[in-house]
Amino acid sequence: MPAVLTADEIERFVTDGFVHLPEAFPRPVAEECRAFLWRETGLDPEDPETWQRPVVRLGGYSDELFQRAATTPRLHQAFDQLVGAGRWTPRVGLGTFPIRFPHPDDPGDTGWHMDASYTPEGETGSWLNLRSRDRALLMLFLFSDVDADHGPTRVKVGSHLDVPPFLESAGERGVDFFTLCQTMHAAGKLDSPERPVALATGRAGDVYLCHPFLIHAAQPNRGTIPRFIAQPPLIPTGLLDLDRHDGAYSPVERAVRISLGTTNDAGIHWLPDMGRRPAETAQPFDVAVTTGLSGIP
């Protein structure tokens, strides 16, 4: 069975921070899940007059239907390729679901940010650290077709490489999400114009697998139909190891090491079955790439 991700796609993940995995789970499953989520909203899919808010957020669901979406062999093989076999925990469901409706009002949640994952003892809020405690990947599961007009998540290409230097001095304890965002914004790195913007467009059943430090943002839905996605983390079995004795760094770890200047292309080590060489140049994205945009999926 051929690898789900090619060597070039893995290199693009390392340098750009994400990869688009088409048909990661069956489209009919996406349609069943979407029908379930419509019922959970209490809104009428046939009556736009009932769509009174720009975004409705639903929690997580562990029903068998969502387990089918989250645990396909295609996804699991991609997790092995990006995170490493035995280094992640299978999902038992999916969530949260930010459902974005066509609406003239500002949804009020479109700022650039990276996701946080835990709260240290004695603290409040959401935190993150250099070794990415409790998050192996950020994932975007598409449950509806999403084009450029229907509120696709925006991602700053390569921005995951900007985050580690701001986390290095915080150690294992890490830093509060808001503090990190403020610090990076003041340094011109949260919404850097040097990083192009890609749109997470695709078809129902597609999944975007993103580096846990990727900077991203929501945007309003200016289309005609609601946009349904889930944005769960992939949970790791442990922390990133940035000093492996065997050199078997995952692509997620390699990106952090590159950001910190602790590796180069000549010193890259590969996990088994992840390809045999680094690509010389990143290939074009299979998502719409835009520039000049500023500004949660």
Rank of each mutant, 00 (worst) to 15 (best):
P26T: 02
H20K: 14
R39N: 05
P26R: 03
R34H: 02
E31C: 05
V19P: 09
W38M: 11
V29D: 13
L43E: 07
E32W: 04
L37A: 12
E32V: 03
E23H: 13
A24V: 05
V19W: 08
E46C: 04
G42M: 10
F18D: 02
T15D: 12
L37D: 13
L37R: 08
E40Q: 13
P26E: 09
L43C: 04
R27P: 04
P22D: 07
P22C: 01
E23P: 04
T41D: 04
T15E: 15
E46A: 14
F25P: 14
P28S: 05
V29W: 04
T41A: 10
G17A: 07
L37V: 05
P22K: 03
W38Q: 06
T41W: 06
D44L: 05
T15H: 08
V19L: 09
F18I: 02
R39P: 01
P28W: 07
R34V: 07
D44W: 01
V19K: 02
F36G: 00
R34P: 04
P26F: 02
D44H: 02
P26L: 03
F25Y: 08
C33F: 02
D47N: 15
W38L: 12
T41P: 06
R39I: 00
E23R: 12
G42A: 11
G17N: 03
P28M: 05
D44P: 11
F25K: 07
H20P: 10
F25L: 09
A35K: 11
G42D: 07
F18M: 12
R27E: 13
G42Q: 09
T15W: 13
D47C: 12
E32F: 02
W38N: 10
R27I: 01
P28I: 00
G17S: 12
F18P: 06
V29Y: 00
L37P: 10
T41V: 07
A35D: 13
V14K: 11
E46I: 01
L21E: 09
G17Q: 01
T15K: 06
C33N: 01
E40M: 09
R39M: 02
R39W: 06
D47F: 09
P26A: 12
R27Y: 08
P26D: 14
F25M: 07
F36K: 04
R34T: 15
W38I: 10
E23N: 13
H20C: 12
L37K: 11
D44V: 09
G17P: 10
D16I: 11
V29N: 00
F18Y: 15
